[in-house]
Computed example of a mutant assay.
Amino acid sequence: MTKTALPTMLSFSAPDLREQIEALPEGTALIGISTAGRAIAVDLDAECPHVLVCTSSGGGSTTVLRSLTAQFLHQGAHALVLDPKRISHLWARGLPTVTHRGNVAGIHDALVGLGEELTRRLDLTDTELDATPRLMVSMDSANSTLRQLTRYWETFRGEDDLHMSPAVTALEAALWSGRAARVHVILDGTPATNILGAAPHELFGTIVLARVSANTWQRLAPLTTPAPRWSRHQGRGHVIQHGEVHETQAIRMTDADVVNWLSDPDDPAN
């Protein structure tokens, strides 16, 4: 396969890129451009409509979460943004169709509410569901967040309560049943099978990896070995879809890009 020379950065403000993004059909969002010159996108109506992003520190996972979530918001979706560091997704604060939660108690309550919303949506007719906005669940730093939720539940779990945190149970239910309810998860991390109950490649139709170890690649993408060599370019990683690996330059969309775009998308100055 002939590789295409890609820019070291693929900015949302690059010529024609915003127009390309806005021309995508509803339910589709652009991750970036591959070294084969292909547009690599997420299709939420695919069989496994969730996205797993895993990078080393500084590898761009937060940027991918922000870019994908923003694109679906632009198409009319709503979003639950779980930001345990409280500073990674400041763009999400104040937007009317976004619920932003940072501390563990807030994340716990939001996920319990997600479980209730999932149940409600699964009881809707097809016509009612089609009229219901998609719901994007964007979770940063999932590994530590899931551990914190487990410990948090233990602090007040009653004798008659289930051992598993209801917040974690709700997230797992969204991963298994989300497609039928127009609920989609974008997760940053390497979820443990003893928490979410399945191997990552069974739960996520799109996996984005950058600068991970060979062991992590084997765990998250066992059907596409061996692990490739990594590029030093910021935002460059590999997207795994349908058993195929695409070296991809991801879109860089800043907090300001997102807020301006979603606050007044028709303003040419934005």
Rank of each mutant, 00 (worst) to 15 (best):
R147H: 11
F156Q: 13
I107E: 06
L124S: 07
G106K: 13
E128P: 03
D126C: 10
L162C: 03
L162V: 12
D160F: 03
V137E: 02
L114N: 08
D123N: 15
A110D: 03
E159R: 15
P133M: 03
N103G: 07
T99H: 12
N103E: 12
M164L: 14
H108N: 06
L124R: 11
T127D: 09
D161K: 14
P133L: 10
M139C: 08
A142Y: 04
V137Q: 05
L118R: 08
S165N: 02
E159C: 06
Q148H: 11
R157D: 04
H100C: 07
P166S: 02
R101Q: 13
L124H: 14
M139S: 05
Y152N: 05
R147T: 12
T145N: 02
R157L: 07
S138F: 00
E154Q: 13
P133F: 12
G113S: 12
L114F: 08
V168Q: 07
A105V: 13
M164G: 08
A110W: 07
T150N: 07
P166I: 01
R134W: 14
T99S: 10
A110P: 02
H108L: 09
T155D: 11
L114S: 07
R151I: 05
A105T: 12
G106F: 03
Q148F: 09
T127Y: 04
T150Q: 07
T132W: 11
T125C: 04
S141F: 10
E128Q: 15
L162R: 12
